[in-house]
Amino acid sequence: MNARSRFINWGAAVLVLALPFATHALLGQGWVRILDFALLYVLLALGLNIVVGYAGLLDLGYVAFFAVGAYCYALFASPQFDLHWPLWVLLPMGALLAACFGVLLGTPTLGLRGDYLAIVTLGFGEIIRIFLNNLNAPVNITNGPQGVSLIDPLHVGPWFLEKTYHVGGIEIPLVINIYFLFLVAVGLAIRLSQRLEGSRIGRAWAAIREDELAAASMGLNTRNLKLLAFAMGATFGGVSGGLFAGFQGFVSPESFTLQESVMILCMVVLGGMGNIAGVVLGAVLLSVLPEALRGLGGLQEFLFGKVWVDPSNLRLLVFGIALVLMMLLRPEGLLPARARQREFHESQ
């Protein structure tokens, strides 16, 4: 590593560490919360990236794994069954359970590709949500549409994240504690993704993505490798689900709609499928941008002295236009993976 890139790395690290404090001081709690959610989305997008970016399998039901992780945490750490299991048990459990669901989803879709695969996975996502919605009778498991509330707040050993700490005169409230917990999770997820990508397995995924028939003819067990991709991607979803449940203190089926799946897919595609930096950028942009666009109301008032268009409508419009423009001007994503960039330029 040369001096320049070391400098950039250190700069980035300081920025990431100082960001929540600066945001808290300048913009308030609400914006730090938005950053927390951005990190959660980064985690989800990195997971989906394994399935879509590495193995080339289009998955429109990814939010199902997020839901599985969230309910796993919610049911085992809340008054619902009066169970209060700790984080270090529930996160791995959620990841494992999500992986099982990944295999469950993967198995019937193995022969499918592209649009067909997207439709089946979309259905799977909806099935999970509808199950969660209806598993309140005859035996009440999920509490139906009301969801599960009073979920135990997150704590890692002696670190209780809902407490406000004071370190050398600096206030560290819940939202900043959460920021750092999620940051650790994202760091691990990035590391994991990098190692998978550069491994024998990652290479096999890339080969399947490029030419499945040739890959199989070279002795790659495409069935197992695809299931592995689904399972690995799902674990990220399961972990972020658990973190989400603990942070929110409340989960309900409403949080796990198709729209969420589409949003996560947009993050991966817009950022640059298969490239970790791109996926992170995509997730941060798409989770922060819609919030920032709420300011459009104030802007109108400033410019025209009056709010002409309801900002909540306008912001979705602007968001949509931004996405369409993006896909027209840079279809390979903001920071595309090397291989993807070539794919796009080849076909032009």
């Binding site: 290479r203 080969a207 890959a215 090397r338 070539r342």
Partner: peptide, 12 residues
């Protein structure tokens, strides 16, 4: 695997 490197192809 035309978008992978020559070496990666053989490694697969």
């Amino acid at each position: 695997f035309s978008n992978m490197t020559v070496l990666e192809n053989v490694m697969v």
